[in-house]
């Protein structure tokens, strides 16, 4: 037994030696020594020759073949142990019980540990792959953006059908640039409860029919999901208004600021402004109007919507608490 212990320690040392043959031999020796007990100690022995030494083989099986290995080894040892005794005491049942419960549990834990390690490896590989993809994408995007910008520039200079082509290239260039920024906000930090307002506003700018330029602090601005969707809806209503009243050539700018206790979304256009009295007139006629719906959304968030308009254009300031 001492000799085999030495051999086993050496043999289990390297993964390539942990073969079914070794495990089978280990268990066979353990059971063999159990079966030898009546021969060596006489029929009415108390403790078996190997005693707790059989645990070595049992644990090896549990580690290697998990629940099933632990169960099979425990059963084999239990049967051998009970089989050689001429009378069975309560302590023997206790030992068998421990064997039967210990083998499968150790096996189960080894199994789940191994599964977790595999899952972690997979996750790490996925993260590394995503990073590499992002790096490659940056190179690809940069090349595409270069060409689109160049087409836009050269097209505008060449005129005619080329100008049209250049314009289309320009639109694609803007939306690709915006998509890249939105992608930057897709982080593990964003959860179901919190969303990135900066990325959402970029998306809004891309989707709008008006030519919109979006300025953000350059990092994700995380807010509860409902707050983000309400702010985006309000900013979207402002932009729709730009398209409706300031004409197709009007340009708009969206600025997101992250203040100490609030966020401010400013939507400005360079249109002719809202004529004095028009909003009041609309309200007077009983029409709620876009302005009121924007104010209502912000009030519901515990914030405020401020409107400033003049010959220089129209500016909405939407402030919501953080």
């Amino acid at each position: 037994m001492t000799g085999w212990s030495g051999v086993a320690i050496w043999a289990y040392g390297a993964p390539r030696r942990r073969t079914p043959v070794l495990l089978g031999l280990d268990l066979a020796l353990a059971i063999g020594s159990l079966l030898l007990t009546p021969v060596v100690k006489g029929a009415d022995f108390n403790a078996t020759v190997p005693g707790f030494w059989v645990m070595g083989a049992l644990l090896a099986w549990a580690v290697h073949w998990h629940v099933r290995g632990g169960l099979v080894a425990a059963m084999a040892i239990s049967v051998a142990d009970l089989g050689i005794r001429d009378h069975i005491e309560q302590a023997n049942y206790g030992n068998v019980f421990l064997l039967m419960i210990g083998g499968p549990i150790v096996g189960y834990m080894c199994g789940s540990l191994q599964r977790m390690a595999t899952e972690r490896d997979l996750a790490e590989r996925a993260a590394a792959a995503a990073e590499e993809r992002a790096r490659l994408a940056r190179a690809v995007h940069d090349g595409v953006l270069q060409v689109l910008s160049l087409m836009q520039r050269r097209g505008a200079e060449a005129g005619g059908a080329w100008a049209e082509l250049g314009q289309v290239a320009g639109e694609q260039e803007r939306s690709l640039r915006s998509l890249i920024r939105q992608q930057a906000g897709v982080t593990a930090e964003a959860s179901d409860r919190e969303q990135d307002l900066a990325g959402a506003l970029e998306a809004l700018g891309t989707a709008s029919a008006t030519r919109v330029e979006v300025s953000t602090p350059g990092h994700p601005v995380l807010l509860p999901g409902p707050v983000v969707s309400e702010l985006v809806a309000a900013a979207g209503a402002c932009l729709d208004n730009v398209g409706r009243h300031a004409g197709p050539d009007a340009r708009a700018w969206v600025l997101l600021e992250e203040l100490e206790s609030s966020v401010v979304v400013t939507v400005r256009d360079d249109g002719p402004g809202i004529p004095a009295g028009r909003l009041e007139a609309a309200q007077h006629e009983g029409r709620l109007g876009v302005a009121e719906s924007i104010r209502g959304r912000l009030a519901a968030l515990g914030g405020e919507a401020r409107l400033d308009t003049g010959s220089w254009g129209t500016e909405w300031e939407l402030e919501a608490p953080r």
Binding site: L145, Q146, R153, E173
Partner: peptide, 27 residues
């Protein structure tokens, strides 16, 4: 810059660049 990646732009300005333009700007 074509893509205007925000971290890079900010980095360049911090390093001392005094102007920034996206490539879609006209001639």
């Amino acid at each position: 810059s074509a893509s205007g990646e925000q971290a890079d732009v900010l980095g360049a300005v911090k390093a001392g660049a005094t102007g920034y333009l996206v490539k879609s700007a006209s001639r």
